[in-house]
């Protein structure tokens, strides 16, 4: 990433226009040609420096159900349980964390009832309790990474 790439990412974390000539407008604000802006975004996506470019949908308002879950899994059973958990398409992210609750994953399902089903299923197959931490309120969700 060069200085121009950083400028692009900093500017476009805040928003991309919703209008007919969107790239021309965004490029003008950055003092770039639209072709250059498009090429640079394509390169950063390709290189994995950007995970995505486009609308960020708010999961809560799309009609799905989500919950954060945690399990305390003994070290000698960890890999077996991780494989069980990761195999569910409903598991979006799964992190190992340094704590007695050492496995933290997010369940996402189109229907609320499906979350409870997957939780019961994981508990039965893994043999360990799943604690659920559904979001009760959200205070801030935004990327604020200055580059």
């Amino acid at each position: 990433m060069d200085e121009t790439d950083r400028r692009i990412v900093n500017a476009l974390q805040d928003g991309f226009p919703v209008c007919e000539h969107a790239f021309a407008q965004a490029a003008a604000g950055l003092g770039l040609a639209k072709e250059d802006l498009i090429q640079r975004i394509a390169r950063m996506l390709e290189a994995g420096e950007l995970t995505r470019f486009g609308p960020m949908y708010n999961a809560d308002r799309m009609g799905g159900a989500f919950t954060l879950c945690a399990m305390a899994v003994p070290a000698d059973d960890f890999e077996r349980v991780a494989a069980i958990v990761n195999a569910y398409p409903e598991v979006a992210h799964n992190y190992e964390r340094e704590h007695s609750l050492n496995m933290w994953f997010v369940l996402a399902a189109a229907k609320p009832g499906r979350i409870a089903e997957v939780v019961r299923d994981i508990e039965r197959r893994a043999g360990w309790t799943v604690l659920q931490f559904p979001k009760l309120d959200e205070y801030f969700v935004e990327l604020k990474f200055a580059l």
Binding site: M1, L12, Q13, F53, M56, N58, V141, F145
Partner: peptide, 16 residues
């Protein structure tokens, strides 16, 4: 109505 939080670039925080 908030279904879209924003439109833009999402940096991979590991890559940066």
């Amino acid at each position: 109505d908030g279904r879209i939080r924003r439109i833009g670039a999402v940096p991979n925080h590991y890559a940066i």
